[in-house]
């Protein structure tokens, strides 16, 4: 039985006269997903993807839709978009297998380059969390002792967070997953249901790949370091805490951190002629 035949059988015109005949199904392609997304809530318009919030199979779901970039050669664009969609879901599964929290994948449409992911409820980005903690800390600088205590608590809280980030990245690198785009926006802090602590969830694996090379892991940390320090001013000490925790948690950290030093130096030593 052909698929068209089957659809016709399942939904005979008798039951639903508005239904198109099976023969008209083929050209429909996968415009269905983009069409569906028009009714969804757009949460973020990124450089290469739009992120929507919606219900899918009755569950709260995030849809990441990669769109084509017209400035790129068609062949390159198609290849990159497809590759990044595939890499993203592969790395997510690899992380989850190792017990590293990442959103579950519900559905992938490779023709419209859409990934349907579990929505991480009760969460905020690490970026927002650090920013708001820093802000409320600086507000209290000239206030009472009580507030200084609060500032101290907030500082400890951030240090604990940095430690958590270091641990999770160590675990990820030990699985040979290179994230490729580590920023504090690509990590979510998820509060547990009864508000007993919180855990980290990694997202946005579009530039990720698998590699065991310390060089690749070092560059991964270098990318994070730059993003971290440029997004959050005056956090050099906090980032050091993160690296310390990474170093304590990863089995292969010494080679990676050596590479990180090398990559940093490369930036400063590059000849820069011209």
């Amino acid at each position: 039985m052909t698929p068209d035949h089957l659809v016709a059988l399942l939904c005979p015109p008798l039951h639903n006269p508005r239904r198109r005949r099976g023969g008209n199904m083929a050209p429909e392609k996968s415009a269905t997903v983009p069409q569906f997304l028009r009714g969804a809530e757009l949460v973020k318009q990124g450089a290469e993807a739009r992120v929507y919030r919606t219900q899918f199979l009755g569950r709260p779901t995030i849809v990441k839709e990669r769109f084509s970039k017209r400035y790129r050669h068609v062949a390159l664009d198609e290849k990159l978009t497809r590759r990044r969609t595939v890499q993203e879901v592969r790395s997510i599964l690899r992380c989850r297998r190792a017990g590293i929290p990442a959103p579950a994948v519900y559905f992938v449409d490779y023709t419209s380059h859409c990934i349907f992911l579990e929505e991480i409820l009760r969460s905020s980005t690490v970026r927002d969390h650090i920013a708001s903690t820093q802000q409320s800390a600086s507000c209290t600088v000239q206030e009472l002792d009580r507030d200084q205590d609060r500032e101290l608590v907030q500082e400890q809280e951030l240090e604990q967070l940095a430690q958590q980030v270091g641990q999770i990245l160590a675990k990820m690198h030990d699985e040979d997953v290179i994230h490729g785009d580590l920023t504090t926006s690509n990590m979510l802090l998820r509060r547990s249901p009864e508000d007993r602590g919180s855990d980290l969830v990694l997202i946005d694996f579009g530039l990720s790949y698998i590699s065991a090379l310390p060089e690749d892991k070092g560059v991964d940390l270098y990318v994070l370091e730059k993003a971290f320090l440029s997004t959050h001013p005056h956090t050099e000490a906090l980032f050091q805490k993160l690296l310390k925790s990474y170093s304590a948690s990863s089995k292969k950290s010494s080679a990676v951190l050596k590479k990180l030093d090398e990559v940093r130096l490369r930036g400063r030593k590059r000849s820069m002629v011209g």
Binding site: H73, A75, L76, K79, L80, G180, D181, L182, T183, L207, V219, D220, Y222, V223, L224, K226, A227
Partner: peptide, 13 residues
């Protein structure tokens, strides 16, 4: 003719 070449973007680098 477009020949495929390595394409390497890491974050903003």
């Amino acid at each position: 003719q477009y020949m495929e070449l390595p394409y390497t973007v890491k974050g903003m680098d």
